[in-house]
């Protein structure tokens, strides 16, 4: 009985170990960024839910994400909302079916640049870039971290209230934006091998 009880406690302890370990060492933003910075390339699937105040129903889209260090980000959306979005350096290119691709200079559109940078700088583990646009808050632990980004530029703040990025280890699992007008978008990310 004692042995059994003993093994039970052992098992319990084992089961609880990751959580214990996590809560035991507080995750610092530097450590998180360093961990994210080890990834050179990542593929993922995403499913996004946009809730627009003007619409009676949310819009659901899905597709794939591709990131390559240091500054290449690609988002391909499946039909029926087909779209290809490529960000490379300071340029953003949006291709929609049936129309010529549109190019945007990110520096000329700070709100858009801020949206892009929230994701790209996090994937790059580039804290300095994040802090240029946002005041950055971190909670959770290495296995379940949450970054809260609040725009520091008032001009961006008029447009974007906050961004929240969550993940585990070096993987980004969810990105949600809340716009100043109350619209939200939540993107859930599943890593692909």
């Amino acid at each position: 009985m004692r042995r059994h009880a003993g093994s039970g406690i052992f098992l319990l302890a084992l089961a609880a170990w990751p959580a214990l370990a996590g809560s035991g060492e507080a995750l610092t933003i530097g450590a998180l960024m360093a961990q994210l910075g080890t990834v050179t390339e990542s593929h993922a699937r995403f499913a996004e839910t946009k809730t627009v105040g003007a619409l009676s129903a949310p819009i659901e889209t899905s597709g794939t994400l591709f990131y390559r260090r240091p500054d290449h980000l690609e988002k391909i959306t499946f039909p029926p909302h087909s779209e290809q979005l490529v960000v490379e350096g300071g340029k953003l290119r949006l291709s929609l079916p049936g129309v010529a691709p549109q190019e945007l200079d990110l520096a000329r559109a700070p709100p858009i640049a801020a949206l892009v940078e929230a994701i790209r700088a996090t994937l790059a583990g580039d804290l300095a870039a994040l802090q240029r646009d946002y005041s950055v808050g971190l909670d959770g632990n290495a296995a379940d971290w949450h970054l809260t980004l609040v725009p520091s530029d008032p001009e961006v703040a008029r447009f974007l209230r906050a961004a929240r990025l969550s993940g585990t280890g070096h993987e980004l699992r969810e990105v949600s934006f809340t716009q100043a007008n109350g619209d939200t978008s939540v993107m859930r990310i599943t890593p692909l091998p």
């Binding site: 946009k50 627009v52 105040g53 003007a54 619409l55 819009i59 889209t61 988002k75 959306t77 909302h81 779209e83 979005l85 949006l94 929609l96 709100p111 858009i112 949206l115 447009f159 974007l160 934006f177 716009q179 007008n181 619209d183 978008s185």
Partner: peptide
Amino acid sequence: LLAALATSAAPLVSVYGL
């Protein structure tokens, strides 16, 4: 507009487009 709201440009569309 409805189509544009489904794209990545949605944040701009909901502010300026509507």
